[in-house]
């Protein structure tokens, strides 16, 4: 019998979160890398998605700590037995995308017409307020206790490794899907128009592009992706608590995008895996290196210092990221002008 606890551990603590953060990073890359829109409230959109997903899938539990906030919406899907959780999961994911996208639309309408840093300030505020609102709406979200015992599709009872691996694969399939859709969209005229706006908005406007509407679409689609990833994240952790969605989360997603090279969809996924491994490493370091309790508490903060230093170093020395966006140059039409 092979020891499968490593499979469980790796998929639960590295692979699955990396795939989920890859979706968030792809969403942010669409907003920032392709359209040049600064979003400092990633954790807010992610958190909204997580809670919407959790609300749809979690059954009602009795009174007690965490009693409120379990609305039991999953019983609406009981007609689909034995696929109740799967259907609730899908509906919850879609609802998470819709709600997150709508919130994104509402914040984008007044701010997209202003300079990039207004959007940054407004989204930073939105992120903070979204999490505070979740914390304060006890009847729906369970307040500080959060939502507990969130089920997920494909559970295999005793075979924990199969449950965890199945979820990681689910997340991986979704990442592939999102990646191909975004790759397609950003190579299409739509994505090229976005890049034109990022480089020079006035020029794009002069060429007859509806720049405001294009930016709005990029922002809303990005926010929706973050929401959907949030729903997946709630299923992964099986709990949704407000403290999971801190500004530090936003900034580590930012680092993923900047490490990967903003505008480069593949690089962003690599960035997500790298940064999530850093987190996995800090979680497991105490088992591997026999840390004293002093450093055991502090290694979490050391990781954030490392992320901060990485951000500063990248901005100073490698602003295009470790894997820069490939420069596309239109080929010279050689038939007209001879060879080379």
């Amino acid at each position: 019998m092979v020891d499968l606890s490593l499979v469980t551990d790796l998929s639960r603590a590295w692979i699955a979160p990396a795939f989920i953060f890859a979706i968030v990073a792809l969403g942010l890359n669409l907003q920032w890398g392709h359209a040049g829109l600064f979003n400092a409230g990633v954790a807010g959109f992610f958190g909204i998605g997580a809670y919407i997903g959790a609300i749809f899938t979690t059954p009602a539990i009795g009174p007690g700590p965490g009693g409120p906030g379990h609305l039991g919406l999953v019983s609406l899907f009981a007609i689909f037995t034995p696929y109740t959780v799967l259907i609730a999961f899908l509906v919850g994911g879609i609802a998470a995308m819709v709600v997150s996208g709508l919130v994104g639309l509402l914040i984008a309408i007044p701010t997209l017409r202003l300079r990039a840093d207004y959007l940054a300030i407004a989204t930073l505020a939105l992120g903070a307020i979204a999490v505070e609102s979740i914390r304060n709406s006890d009847p729906v979200t369970g307040g500080v206790y959060g939502i507990l015992r969130i089920p997920r599709p494909w559970e295999f009872g005793q075979d924990v490794w199969r449950t965890e691996l199945a979820y990681a694969i689910t997340a991986g399939v979704i990442v592939l899907l999102v990646f191909f859709l975004i790759q397609r969209a950003t190579r299409a005229p739509w994505g090229r128009a976005l890049k034109a706006i990022r480089e020079d908005e006035d020029a794009a406007l002069a060429l007859g592009k509806n720049t405001y509407f294009l930016k709005l679409q990029a922002f809303v689609i990005g926010a929706a992706l973050m929401g959907g990833a949030g729903a997946l994240f709630a299923g992964l952790l099986r709990v949704a608590v407000p403290d999971s969605f801190t500004p530090a989360l936003t900034f580590s997603i930012w680092t993923m995008v900047i490490v990967g090279g903003s505008g480069n969809n593949k690089g962003v996924i690599v960035g997500a895996f790298a940064l999530t491994f850093l987190e996995y490493f800090t979680l497991r370091a105490k088992d591997w290196f026999n840390l004293s309790s002093f450093w055991d508490i502090r290694i979490f903060y050391l990781r954030l210092i490392a992320i901060g230093l990485l951000l500063i170093a990248l901005i100073l020395f490698r602003p295009a990221g470790l894997v820069p966006e490939p420069r596309k140059v239109t080929k010279k039409p050689w038939i007209l002008f001879g060879s080379r």
């Binding site: 940054a120 903060y301 050391l302 210092i305 990485l310 951000l311 901005i315």
Partner: peptide, 21 residues
């Protein structure tokens, strides 16, 4: 405006977490 803003996020992470450490 965005490059220094991102750098200031890095500075914020470094300062806050150095103090915590």
């Amino acid at each position: 405006p965005v490059a220094p803003l991102v750098a200031s996020i890095g500075v914020s992470l470094v300062m806050q977490n150095s103090l915590t450490t």
